[in-house]
Write a protein that binds this DNA or RNA. Sequence first.
DNA 1: CTATGGCACGGATT
DNA 2: AATCCGTGCCATAG
Length: 470
Amino acid sequence: MLQRQITGIRPLTTAHLAQTMTLLSLTTEELQQEIDSELASNPALEIIEERRCPNCHRLLSDHGKCPVCSLPANLDSTEPVVFLSPRDEFLPRKDYVDSTMDDEPFASEVEELPTFVLRQIAPDLDQNQRALAAYLLTHLDEDGLLTTTVYEVSRYTHFPVSEVEKVKRLIQHADPIGVGSSSPQEALLIQLEVLSDITDSVPEIAERLVREGMDQLSHHQYSDLAHKFKVPVKQITQAAQFISENLNPFPARSHWGDVRQPAHEETQVYHQPDILINYLNDDSSKPLIVEIIMPISGTLQVNPMFKQAIKEASEDSRTELKGDLEKASLFVKCLQQRNHTMERLLTRVVSLQRDFIINGEKYLRPVTRVQISREMEVHESTISRAVANKAVQMPNKRIIPLAEFFDRSLNVRSVLKEIIEGETKPLSDSDLADLLAEKGFVVARRTVAKYRSIEGILPAHLRRAMARGA
DNA sequence: CTATGGCACGGATT
DNA sequence: AATCCGTGCCATAG
C-alpha cells in the first residue's frame, strides 16, 4: 500500500472512508479517547513531540515556522489563518466534566453533587439519617431530580415514609435549592418558598401558578391562566417572567450552565470549545486566527522502529505485526484526513462568515452544509458530521455550536429582536413582517410568530402588559 | 374584525 | 429515511 500520500485527498478504501467519517464527528474530548485507546492497543503507533514556538508556544509547522508569529505584522488579508493546535497550552485543564463521557471523570461528577449536598446537611442529621440521605442522593439524575419515589425508598431502606420525606425536604433546601425534588414543579415550589423567605419580591400568585397551572405555564398560555385564576394577564406575565428569571426547574443545571434563561428546553451547554477563533493581536482589522484544537501535542505516526522490527521478526509473528502496522498506518491516514477536512472546512466557513464573527448575529449569512460540501467536493454527510457536536469559541469568548454557522434564520431573528427592542408601541406580527421585508427579509407573518416564540418574545398585546408592569 | 397559536403539508436539509 | 423549517389555513380569544 502506498502510505506516503501527503494529507491524502483521495482516500478510497472503504475502511479508510468509514473511519475518517467517525473521526470527523468526534469532539476534541472524544478524539482524545479514541487516540489514547488506539495508542494503547497498537504498538506500531507513536506520537512524535513537535517543537514549539518559543514565543507563543504553538506547534511549529512542517517548515519549522510558527503559524502565527511568522505572519507579517502588517498582514491585513481577510482570509483566515487556520491551523491545528494542541490543547494543553491553551486551555486550562478542565475543571468540570462533560456529561456525555462515560469513564472516570463522569463518575467523579456524579459523586460530586451528592457529596456537595451531603456535606451541607450532614450536621443536621444523625447517623441513620445520613445513610438515608446518601441513599437518596445516589438516585439523582443529571438534572438534580430524584429518580425514585419516597415510597420505594422507604421499602428499600425500611425508614418510615415520614422520615424519608423529612430528609428529602432537608436536601431540597440545600444548595442548589430544589435538588432532590421529584419533578421540576416541586423544585420550583421549593425555590419559591425559599425565595419568599429572603425577599419580598416574589409575586403572590407565583406559587398557585406553579402548583395548579404548571402545564399552561410551560406552554406560555398566559391568557388561559389569567382566566383560570381570575386575575389580569399582566399579573400572570409578570409572575411568569419572575419565574423564568429567578427559578430553575432543573436544580443541578445551575451548576454548570451560566445564567441563561433556564426556561428554555435546549439548554445544551458547550463547555469545551473544539475550535478557537481570535483576531491576530486582538485587532479586529487583522485576519482571524482559527485554531482547531487537537488533543495531543504532537503528530501521530507509525513508529519507524516497528517497521524495522518486522523485518527481523520470525515468520509466524510477522503476519500479526503486519496487521498492527496496517491498522496503525490506516489510523494515521484517517486522522490526517480528518484534520485536513476540518482545516478546509473552517477556512471556507470562517471566511464566508467573517462578518458574523466580527459583528454578530445580524450578519450571519444563511449558508447550508450542502453548499459547502459542493465547494469542497466532498459528500454532504461529511460536512454534517464535521459540524455536529462541535463548539467554537468566538473572539469575544462566547462559546457557540459550530452548527450556528449554518443557521438559516438566525440573522432574521436577530434583526427581529432588534426591531422589537426598539419599538415604541408593541407591533403586531404582520407589522413586524412588513418591517422585516423593508430590510430585505421577506418572511411570512406566520414565520414571524415562530421566530418570536423561538426567541421567547411575548406577543404584542402581552408585551404591552409587560411594559406597563415594569 | 384583528392578532395569534395549532396543525399539518411539502420541500429542503441532514 | 428521518427530521427540520417555513408557510398556509383555520379556530379561537379579545
